[in-house]
Amino acid sequence: MRKYTPKDNVQKKSYYTDRYWVAPRVPQTEVEAGSHFADVVKALGRKAKESYVSVGQLVIHIKSTDNFDVMKTLKEECGYTQCSEQSAVDYLAQDGEFELFWQLLNITEAKRVRVVTRIKEKEAIESIEPLFRSANFAEREMFDMFGIKVNNHPFLKRILMPDDWEGHPLLKTYPLHGDEFASWYEVDKIFGKEYRDVIGPENRDPARIDRYDTKRFSRVGYEVPFGADISEGEKEQPIEYSETILVDYNKNSSKQLDERR
């Protein structure tokens, strides 16, 4: 029977898992009354669906449609003037959702808050670029890597991948060695699709192993006994030596050994 490989998550998986093993959790504590974090939760009111402190940072779960209002409150009332980071986590295979997070920093209190929300696969999220300009690049990266649309972003365009790229690389469904489009990208772009057959996968692939290439350790991992016939019926091609070496390596001055010394 063929081994089952799930199509919705093609990432590397552990080859062995103890079925009785239950992973512990990173400790989460309740927000202490009277602390700075308690004031933050209070300022957000009912918009904070769930809040706890984890590894010294406040984590707030919100509704995805509230994200702009929540950020505005955090920036203007709670003093969170910098958005350090934002991105997404792919939970499409499990729940059909993305988890989005924003990491905010309050410089006067030296406190950090992580705002977390979830959106469905085709849903868009409101841009927080008017509040934090750093979101300009961060949201573009999120769009590029996950395909999450951001409403009212001034310039939502791919940032790391080329503009005409297909697929979003950080999705769990994206193959590890790239898909067919990725492997033919340069050939398609420079020569056109019809040249795929002319060039062929062996010339496209820079990791190709040439059996006659003795200069670049091409037989590493494919060793054969000394003197074995490796030609498989192909004609042998002469070994080329670099012309930059000053020694004259012509046939007369050198001798190929036919047995080991």
Binding site: S14, S54, Q57, R114
Partner: peptide
Amino acid sequence: TQGMRPPKGEVYVP
């Protein structure tokens, strides 16, 4: 051979 298995959860460490 298998790698460590840390607890479930998330951290952001600056």
